[in-house]
Each structure stands twice: as C-alpha cells, then as structure tokens.
C-alpha cells in the first residue's frame, strides 16, 4: 500500500478515469439514442465502431492527421449506418438480426482491412491531451479542478459537448420532434405529412456516424493503436446504456459515467490490493448498472414503435 496516495487523490483518480473511459460509450450510446428514438434498434454498433476505429486509425497512419482520421471514421460510420437503414427501414428487416449481421460484417471487414493494409499492430500519434496552457500557466496544473476537468483530449470534450447538443436537437427542434414522433407513433406522424422513413434514415445515419466516431475515440485518441476486435463488445454495452438512460441523452450520459466510473473504481480496488478476487471486481460495473436501474425512482419510456418497421398503408 502506498502511503503517498491520499483518499482524495484516489477519488480524483477514479473520477478522472471514469470521465475519460466514458468517452466511447457516450458517442456510441448517444448515437444509438437517435436511432432508437426514431424507432430503429441498431445492434450493430460494435461493428460500426470497429470500422470507424480502423478507418480513423488507417487515415492517421497514412496521413498523420488525426482530424482527417476523425472525418474518415465519421464517414465510414455514416456509410455503415446507411447500410442498416436500407436493410432495416426500406426492407423492413427484423431489427434484432440486422444489427447482428452488420456487427459480423463490421468485425470481419475491419479485421480484413487491417490484415491487408497494415498487417501488424502499430502505434500512431493521435489527438494529444489538452492542458489549456496560456503563457506558461496551465489550467491542468490547478489543484483538483485541473485534474478533474482539464486533462483530456479533444475527443473526450467532444463527447460531453455532444450531450447537450443532442438534447437540444431531440427536444427543441422540429426535426427532433419528428424523430420522436416517428418513434412513438409513425402512423400519426405519417398522417400529418412527416416522411417517416426519411426521418428514420437521418436518425440512424447520425447514430452510425457517432458510432464511427466512438470507434475513432478508441483508436486515435484513447489508445492510439488498432487491433482486431479492439472494442471487445463495448458497442453492446453502449446499446444497453441507452436503455439505462431511458432514451434521453442526459440519462445515457449518466449511465455511461456510472458504468465507467465503477469500472475505474474496480481497477483501483485491484490496484490498491484490496482483498477481492479480480473476477468479482470486474463484475462490479455490470452488477451495479443493473442494480441502479432497478432502483424504483424511474420508469423507462420505450419508444412505442421501437423495432417496428413502418410501411404506409399497412398495420
């Protein structure tokens, strides 16, 4: 046990880790929120993330520019989202299964491209950590506040900025109203002249874009490497977090923070050598997320048309 570590330092460390670790979950889960709000379940988030992670990484690997990498990841994410749109919206395929198909395709394709184009695990220089320095003084050096708020890279800030933005989009714009309407009652929306499938296309594509960015946040921001199947199922957790957040960006944010902070906590528990088997520690975030949702202060409001395809004149 290290005496230098004060309780405060540990708590700060846990929060700091939690905030950073939440980054990919927030992008992916907020993206999935758009998708589900419009009535489309996308189980393929993990596959899209892998494609985003690869294309982001490969672009940086070739050009050295993280910004280009981010754009590439977003573009490929949007494309994957569009594929899902065609299958799930236009052709009204069973959504639980189309996502799994997309996941398999993304996992296979990203690994194949990695094998063909790169071949071995390499490191790149991704987005740097911002320390907000002005003339020799860095905000990051401030006690407590500095560590808590000013030592992340731009993609982490982007994730948190995304939450109010998404809230605004969903709750304060006409488009957001349409998204919610087609997710809740597509027939009614259709009867007042909303093009249901077009709105769904947009929402799912945005979801795909954000999932692609979520992948890039791993490969060119948090880890700066690419490896086959590097998300390791993170995208599925992101889908679960949408349910945790009751389809609200803020709720999703809280879920992501809870999950990743508990994850950070369990790592600390192990690092500090507390007498707990590692497996039990690893279990904690999953267990606590269920328990937190079981607390009786909130009920989920599932979009009523979720997983239900819409076709004019049917139903």
């Amino acid at each position: 046990m290290n005496e230098d570590l004060t309780t405060l330092a540990i708590i700060l460390g846990i929060i700091h880790s939690g905030i950073r670790l939440a980054t990919p979950y927030i992008y992916a889960a907020v993206g999935e929120t758009f998708s589900q709000r419009s009535g489309v379940l996308n189980l393929g988030v993990d596959g899209i993330m892998l494609m985003g992670a690869f294309f982001g990484f490969y672009t940086v690997f070739e050009t050295g520019s993280p910004v280009l990498g981010l754009l590439a990841a977003a573009a490929v994410g949007a494309l994957m989202g569009l594929i899902l749109c065609v299958v799930s919206i236009t052709f009204q395929a069973e959504q639980g299964i189309s996502g799994i198909g997309l996941y398999m395709f993304g996992l296979g394709m990203s690994s194949l491209l990695f094998k063909t184009l790169i071949g071995s695990v390499e490191g790149v220089q991704g987005f740097p950590i911002l320390r907000f320095c002005m003339g020799g003084f860095c905000l990051a050096d401030l006690p407590i506040v500095g560590e808590l708020f000013f030592e992340y890279n731009i993609m982490t800030y982007g994730a948190y900025a995304l939450v109010p933005l998404s809230w605004y989009l969903l709750n304060r714009t006409t488009w957001g109203l349409k998204v919610r309407a087609v997710g809740q009652n597509p027939e009614a929306a259709d009867s007042v002249g909303v093009n249901v499938n077009r709105v769904r296309y947009a929402a799912v594509t945005i979801g795909g874009t954000l999932a692609g960015i979520a992948g890039a946040s791993l490969s060119i921001s948090l880890l700066n490497i690419f490896q086959e199947n590097m998300t390791n199922g993170l995208g599925f957790i992101a889908v679960a977090l949408v349910y945790f957040g009751s389809w609200r960006p803020v709720g999703v944010l809280l879920g992501a923070l809870l999950f990743s902070t508990v994850n950070a906590l369990q790592l600390w528990v192990q690092v500090l050598g507390l007498n707990i088997p590692s497996d039990v520690a690893v279990m904690m975030p999953y267990l606590l997320t269920i328990i937190a949702l079981a607390l009786p202060f909130r009920r989920a409001l599932q979009p009523r048309a979720l997983t239900k395809p819409f076709a004019r004149g049917e139903n």
Partner: peptide, 21 residues
Amino acid sequence: NVSFTGSFGDTALAAEAANTH
C-alpha cells in the same frame, strides 16, 4: 499493483487499467 481486466481482449479496459496504475 496488480489488476486484471477479466478478459483477454478488452484493450480499452487494459488501457484504463494502465492509466489507473
């Protein structure tokens, strides 16, 4: 300080474990 991620492939959690260390 020893920590286990509980999986052989969870790179993200391994990264966070390194950060924690």
